[in-house]
Design a protein around this nucleic acid. Structure first.
Lengths: 178, 178
DNA sequence: CGATATATAGACCAATTGGTCCATATATTG
DNA sequence: CAATATATGGACCAATTGGTCTATATATCG
């Protein structure tokens, strides 16, 4: 997963994969079929990790505002300095392959949909406990937040300071929460 | 430019370039040096186009709120349906190459900086004419908006409906403007 | 221990990669 | 028209691509 993450699909050649997996060509092909399948496997793991994190941070039993704050903080952490420069496997893959590769497109669209649902749910719960600012609609706020977060991971390529990103994220959330 | 835009750097092979430029190998190498230089040329043109559009939409002589609205509308247009699916050469390049390719990294960082400055300026002007909502700081709002816009172009890979994207963009701007 | 299954290393392959080079057209100019 | 400069096509190249295959080592198990 890591090598695809660092370099992207096309830029990752078989020798890179062999080094990373410590497998020989034969074993790698026996175990995974081909480069594309292996990539899909890596992508699925990346997505699974992201979902796990989301389940934890946006857990319905938690305070929704705290949850959103934690969720944002995670993105900020991953979108600054060296972490940021490394980028996001999902965003990179979406831009590189989602158009031409149906398998990848499906995965991206599906992840995006569940992400939107979870965040919208968190905003909904915030609304029921009266923490939403006036005139804010949960589903709309969720879509905004998600675009913002994907964008953070693009901007991250310039390796911004954590403080800046954190302040920006705080400022956005402050527009939605009271 | 178009072929790099549609397929990305690594996925674009020489034959694609020859077909697109209608040049032969010899002529292409005589004219541009190598694939990388040609790509940089294409990227520069893409950036120049983006800057021109920005200069127009965020023109200081224009009403700043109208300008921001037009600026957003442009992104929405480019981030829905088939346009969206095609993606954004800058975002794709940033994710694919900005980390490993210094030339590209510089261009991306520089474009990002001027984009931030222009948008911040627009918000500033909105503030001086009393159109900024309470508690909104221009530079912070600019950073938020920019992340949102980059994110739009990522989400665009799922080819969302124009109405949805437009509504989302409107909702965000509504949080900043009064 | 001996037989059998499994995993490994790496030689090998065709196709494609980005890039060079030159013989021939095509202008340009005196 | 002749001489020279320039542009063009495409043959050609080494290196690399993703992928196969087999001889050998290593387990596994009766």
């Amino acid at each position: 997963m890591n090598v695809f993450w660092s370099r992207g699909y096309h830029a990752t050649a078989l020798p890179d994969l062999l080094r990373a997996t410590k497998l020989s060509r034969g074993s790698l092909y026996a175990a995974f079929g081909d480069k594309h399948s292996l990539f899909l496997r890596a992508l699925d793991r990346y997505i699974a990790d992201a979902l796990t994190r989301m389940d934890d941070e946006l857990d319905p039993r938690r305070d929704p505002v705290d949850g959103l704050r934690a969720y944002l903080a995670g993105y900020v952490e991953r979108a600054c300095g060296a972490n940021g420069r490394r980028g996001c496997l999902l965003v990179a893959t979406a831009m590189e392959l989602a158009g031409a590769d149906a398998e990848v497109g499906r995965r991206f669209a599906s992840f995006f949909k569940t992400m939107e649902a979870r965040v919208a749910d968190a905003f909904s719960r915030a609304e029921t406990v009266g923490r939403l600012a006036d005139g804010v609609e949960p589903s709309s706020a969720a879509r905004i937040l998600i675009c913002f977060l994907w964008g953070l991971r693009v901007v991250a390529k310039t390796a911004p300071a954590r403080t800046t990103s954190q302040a920006t994220a705080d400022a956005l959330l402050a527009r939605f929460i009271k």
